[in-house]
Design a binder for these strands. Structure first.
Lengths: 257, 257
DNA sequence: ACACTTCGATTTGTAGGACTAAACAAGAGA
DNA sequence: TCTCTTGTTTAGTCCTACAAATCGAAGTGT
């Protein structure tokens, strides 16, 4: 791993950033997660500048090349900006690409931030009904069939099980594909990345307060019947339910701490 | 620029990817644009794999380091994925981060794709009314004042002039900030990047069919009065107008070609 | 006080080599 | 024949070390 002989330090037992080891994870990848998470969680505040690249690379005992590639990926996501002489500095939050799935993942790595969850649900409230509406308008019969099956396995397994969550994702994914709208598809891909984390968080903390299957069913039926307004309405209800559950899970979690 | 002596080729007159020269643009940056544009416009189809990195770097007469950093930035935006032995391949469109401002820029570099424009406006139709609603609910007096001023300069200069477009951007930016919603702010940042290109495109091709200032004014007044429903409605009208204009500009452009 | 120059810190770009993962093919064993 | 293992090859990954362009700030001259 370390060139011809590293930096004189023994190859066994590296000092920092747990080694990628035998896993498929690349060194650059773990470094990216390491830095990205530290930035998104606010551990290094916007405006601050990271120590110089030679210095950092040395401290973490990795090469400048690997470090630079990780930093360039952060820059591509709008988290940092690096210029000669000034160094690499963390940008203000507004410049961040919050919609990037990886950024979302970092944001939800620790405990979910209540403000971010609220913002996210406000966004979903704006977008998802329109998604349902468009899906009702343009869905194909094959997509209806796929959603029916996903719904079936979902009601069998329940959302507490892995297989049920998979079915849930499949349901929403197909709904999205039915809109035929590229932009909405990528947006919701990011959102559902975040939603997956809150869902798993919910099922950890306290379980669900109401069965989500009936609401999914209403959405499905409206889409199948191509009733646009009903689809939008059903989706709104589904979202309200999810928001309530998330709020309660968050409150429970806060109470315990 | 070229190490000790490049690759033996004379330093004057480089073969490909116009050199960054005295400009502030970094070599990696122009390479990123070059590759990104080629991918987004479909010149290299999804599924295809780029030639090997040594080969490419050699052909373009740049170092592997610079090339790799550019590719890593593309990977961060979800455009490509590179693995040993397989090479670097372009991902399917659904995995692209279309909301990334740079990806948007590449998408609108050539002639705007009609389908993408439609998708974008469907998205705006879903999101922007909610933006107006939230802004009406939470706006501060200072923000109202800022919007008033932007509107004033905008009605003076008109959207055909640079200064007018700046004021327009300022108006929408402030409206966005008034929502207090981080997620919506980043989303609309991406969207307005695209909108800026269509706007400049519109003013090139045929001008505007209707004065946009009155519609902006209606939005402003509703937000100032904290009338959420009126704000949403006014925004919907504003969007309809913009969509009509864009459609006609697109049609004119197509007719000429 | 103002413009111009120099200097130093830091990123940018270059070169070439060693390591490793992954795909493919060939061979060994059942 | 089929599967499992083993080698071979390919291309990305990671490493070191050096040269150069940039830009801020301090210094210098007028």
């Amino acid at each position: 791993m370390a060139g011809t002989s590293g930096k004189g330090k023994p190859d066994h037992q590296r000092p920092l950033v747990d080694t990628p080891k035998g896993s498929g994870r690349r060194l650059r990848g773990v470094l990216l997660d390491f830095l990205g998470e530290r930035i998104v969680t606010g551990e290094v505040a916007p405006g601050e500048t990271l120590p110089g690249e030679v210095e950092t690379a040395e401290k973490l005992d990795i090469s400048r090349g690997a470090y630079r590639e990780a930093v360039k990926m952060l820059a591509a996501k709008g988290l940092v900006e690096s210029r000669p002489k000034t160094g690499t500095r963390v940008l203000e939050r507004v410049r961040w690409n919050l919609l990037d799935p990886e950024v979302m993942r970092w944001a939800f790595a620790g405990r979910p931030d209540a403000g971010l969850v609220r913002d996210l649900f406000e966004m979903r409230a704006a977008v998802e009904p329109s998604v349902a509406r468009l899906a009702a308008k343009r869905r194909s019969d094959a997509q209806v069939e796929r959603m029916r099956q996903a719904l079936a396995t979902m009601s069998e397994a329940g959302l507490t099980h892995e297989i049920g969550r998979d079915a849930d994702r499949m349901f929403h994914e197909t709904l999205l594909a039915a809109t035929g709208n590229q932009v909405m598809m990528t947006l919701s891909a990011s959102i559902s990345a975040a939603v997956a984390y809150t869902t798993i968080f919910k099922s950890r903390a306290g379980g669900f307060r109401r069965d989500p299957v009936p609401d999914h069913l209403r959405v499905f039926e409206a889409v199948a019947a191509q009733d646009e307004e009903a689809a939008a309405g059903a989706m709104r209800e589904l979202l309200d339910l999810a928001y309530d559950d998330t709020q309660h899970a968050l409150a429970d979690h806060a109470a315990k701490a």
